[in-house]
Design a protein around this nucleic acid. Sequence first.
DNA 1: TCATCATTCAATAAATCAATAGAATGATAG
DNA 2: CTATCATTCTATTGATTTATTGAATGATGA
Lengths: 219, 219
Amino acid sequence: MTSKLDLLDTLASVARALGNGHRLALVERLAQTEASVDTLAETTGLTVGNASQHLQQLRKGGLVTARRDGKQMFYRLTDERVVTLVTLLRQVAETNLAEMERLVGRLFADDDAQGGLETVGRDELLSAMASGKIALLDVRPNVEFKAGHLPEAINIPLDQLEEMLTVLPKDKEIVAYCRGPYCVMSHQAVQRLHQLGYRVRRFEEGYPEWKAAGLPIAS
Amino acid sequence: MTSKLDLLDTLASVARALGNGHRLALVERLAQTEASVDTLAETTGLTVGNASQHLQQLRKGGLVTARRDGKQMFYRLTDERVVTLVTLLRQVAETNLAEMERLVGRLFADDDAQGGLETVGRDELLSAMASGKIALLDVRPNVEFKAGHLPEAINIPLDQLEEMLTVLPKDKEIVAYCRGPYCVMSHQAVQRLHQLGYRVRRFEEGYPEWKAAGLPIAS
DNA sequence: TCATCATTCAATAAATCAATAGAATGATAG
DNA sequence: CTATCATTCTATTGATTTATTGAATGATGA
C-alpha cells in the first residue's frame, strides 16, 4: 500500500519548486509569455547556467514545460493555474505575514507620499470597459504586449511614455496596468501621467491574473 | 528602494513552509480542527519535539497560529485560504505530475478492482441535499465531527460502522465524506456499505474544502 | 515552594539545496 | 565534417534543512 506520506511528499516537492525567490521571479516572467533561457536569465539577473538549473527544478515540479526551437529552448507555464497558485500564495502571505506588509508598504511608499494612488478593481474595470468611458493603457514592453493583452488596450512601454503621449485621449480617464500587483511599472506611469494633468488610475491586478481568471484577451 | 527580490523571497518562504510532507500532513490535520502539539504529533507519527519544530516553521510562514490553554499549546490554521492554497497545489500537482497520478492511482487501486466507486461533485451534492433525497454520512472521528460538519450529516466513525448501521436509513441513497480527496476513510466506508447492499456514493471533496468554499456548516 | 507535565530551545550530524566554473550535448551554418 | 552557439550536465563548495537528543521554560497543583 502506498503510504500517504509519499503522496504528500510529491505535493511538497511542487511547493518546494516555488520556494525560492529566483524561481518565483522566473515564474512571474513566464506568466507574461514564453521565453528562451537566455532571455529569462537576462530579465532575472541570473547566469544562464543558474537559470537553467532553476528551470529544471520548476520542470520537475511540473510547473513549466519546454520546447526546442532551433538552437533555443523556450519555456512556458504548463497551466494558467500556476498563476492562480502564485496569486493565492501572495494573498495568504499578505494577510498573514507582517513582514510582507512591511515590504509592500515600502515598495510603494512613494505613492502614499503624494496622497495615494487610486486603483480600479476587476469588476469596476469590466463595467468601465463596457461603457467605453475609459482608455486602457498597457505599459509593459512591446514583446509582452504582442503576446497577449487586455481588449482595446493601448500599448505604450514605460520608457516611451513621454514620446508617445499623443496616442492617449485627453478627454477620457485612463486606467494603466502592467505585469501584476507588485509590478512597479504602472505605478510609475500613473504618477507621471498624474503630474501631466491626466485623469488616471491603476488597475490593481495585471495581465497574468486577468488571463488566469479566464477573461477575454486580445493579441 | 526595496528590491523586488526581497518580496519574492518572503513569498518563497511561505511556499517553503509547505514544502515538506510532514508539514503538509500537519496542515491537513489542522484543516479538520485545531489541536494540541501532542495530538498533532500522534496523528502524524512525529515525535513531539519534531512536530513542535515543524509547527514553528509553519508559524513563521504565517500559515498557523498558536494559543495557550493551560499547559497545552493549541495550533490552528490562520485562515481558510490555507486550505484553498493546498487544494490548488494538489490540482496543479495532479494535472502536471505523472508521478502524482501514479501514486493516487495506487492509493485507490482497490476501488477500481471492483469497478470503480462513483463519486458526487459539490454542485450535485448541494442539490441532492436540498431535495432531501440523500443521507449524508460523516465517517471522521467524533472529535472532528463535533468541531464542525456538513449540515444534516450523520456521524458514524469508520471503526464503528458495523455497530451503528441502524442509524442509517435503508431507503435513501447515502453519500459519504471525510477529511478530503485523499482521505481513505470514506472510500473504505463506501466499499463496506456497498457490500452490505446500500446504495452509496462518495463525496469527492471533504469537510475542509467545503468549509473553505464558504458553504454552510453545522456544529 | 517543589514536582510534574507539555512544549520549546539548543546542539549535533546527515541530507539536501544553491551558486560557480568547466565539460558535454544538440542543432545549425558553412 | 567542422565550427559555433544555446543549453544542459557534472563536480565542487558553502549554506540550509532535517531528525535526534537532552536541557530549559512555563503553567499547574500539592
